[in-house]
Amino acid sequence: MFFLLSMAVAGDLRHMLSQRDGVSCRELGEATPELRDGLLALTGPEELPSSVPMGATSCLIERFPADPLVMSTLQGWMGQKERAGQALVVVSMLGQVEASWRVPLALGALSQEDPAWRERMRVRLVKVPGLEGIEPLLSEPVVAAQK
């Protein structure tokens, strides 16, 4: 029953997140566990159109910035090649995440295998406040450090 409910929620959310000109995360409804689970169900990298997994990721950050399930799920993706785009979204919105999750998420982004992606993450992380302790990882360009 819960699965069917989540499928129905995900179907509506998919349509809303498909809009070419966007939807406000606030328009998706109350920040309930049902919304959270519906959004998590749409974060698969195979989802189309591409705004669905990307928008779901964005709205999870905005609406559930301190939710342990959401944050641990994101942390699990951050270094995955097939999630590099989503990881960049997380990095771009890291300032909205509850402070204790910022460093673990940043370190996940910096663990991307491809140096070009690590560099993309680094230049964006430099601007994020509250990343105490990992400044040395952000101070040098990744590609240059490879030479």
Partner: peptide, 10 residues
């Protein structure tokens, strides 16, 4: 650009 590139960023 990243929305168009999608989850893998490519």
């Amino acid at each position: 650009w990243i929305t168009c590139a999608g989850a893998d960023g490519e």
